[in-house]
């Protein structure tokens, strides 16, 4: 399955996720095309992570989720794993596994049980380690890594998967300002190569600065969707987050900046 640049990779229509007797996500439609970064934003408990997980597995979900035109349910497990890489918010990291071993597991969908790692697989693994900035600690055990290093390792595994669609849940949490900027540069490069990226971002300012489109969730529903400028507005931010935060425009780039209202006075 391939798709030309700009073609829809993921199309989700009227997705509803029920859990614990209530709708965590209600009638959400979302689309990710090749070459673009779509940011999923919203206050805590808006259903961002739930939606992302639902899209990743398309289980316990009502609605129509398509991967390159095919209903998600009809895509077999391994094909799906070759097309979609998922990095959850706090994935468990087996402490006694090395960084390189974990990243190499990204090749599993391509290798299956019996195929041996080829030179190509090795190159992909080393390339993923390098791009995600993990080559310096590739032989260390996962149990010895800092929170930020661990994030990058899972990004590296997603890269090693060579997937067309990346679903990332807050990959920039625990990263310092420089590492955050480098992460979004990396995601931009990966998108330019033809991948589509759906990323949950907590920080509205960095989401607006780094994503092509944003989807703002509130209480499980889409409050606004579109280019950052149209989504991160004073009106939407007030509706989603309340009066404690305010929106400004960056003086030269015009990118919306969200800061605490108290600090802006």
């Amino acid at each position: 399955m391939t798709a030309p640049l700009g073609a829809p990779l993921l199309e989700a229509r009227d997705v509803t996720v029920r859990a614990g007797g209530r709708d965590i996500v209600r009638n959400v439609s979302i689309e990710v095309r090749t070459g673009e970064i779509v940011g999923l934003v919203g206050p805590n408990g808006a259903g961002k992570s739930t939606l992302l997980r639902a899209l990743a597995g398309a289980r316990h979900v009502s609605g129509d989720v398509r991967l390159i035109g095919t209903p998600m349910g009809a895509v077999d497990r391994r094909t799906r794993a070759r097309l979609v890489a998922v990095v959850e918010q706090l994935p468990e990291a087996p402490p006694a596994m090395t960084v390189r071993e974990l990243v190499a597991l990204g090749r599993f969908p391509h290798l299956g049980l019996l195929r041996r790692q080829s030179a190509h697989d090795q190159n992909v693994i080393e390339g993923a380690l390098r791009r995600a900035g993990c080559d310096a600690f590739a032989d260390r055990l996962l149990g010895t890594l800092s929170g930020g290093e661990r994030r990058r390792v899972f990004i590296a595994r997603a890269l090693a998967q060579e997937a067309r669609l990346l679903l990332l849940d807050e990959p920039s949490a625990n990263l310092d300002a420089e590492a955050q900027a480098m992460l979004f540069e990396l995601l931009r490069a990966v998108a330019t190569e033809g991948a589509g990226i759906l990323v949950v971002v907590h920080d509205l300012t960095s989401a607006a600065a780094s994503c092509d489109r944003l989807v703002l969730l509130r209480q499980g529903s889409v409050l606004a969707a579109g280019p950052p400028h149209d989504v991160v507005t004073a009106e939407h931010v007030l509706a989603a987050y309340g009066p404690h935060v305010s929106v400004f425009e960056h003086p030269t780039s015009g990118i919306p900046i969200v800061i605490p209202t108290a600090a802006a006075r």
Binding site: R77, R80, A85, E88, F108, P109, L114, Q161
Partner: peptide, 23 residues
Amino acid sequence: GITSRALDVLQLDEEQAEHLGLH
């Protein structure tokens, strides 16, 4: 012997293993 690579994938949590295409 045949399933040992799958056992490596299983060292991750179930959700990650599923995302990597493992049954």
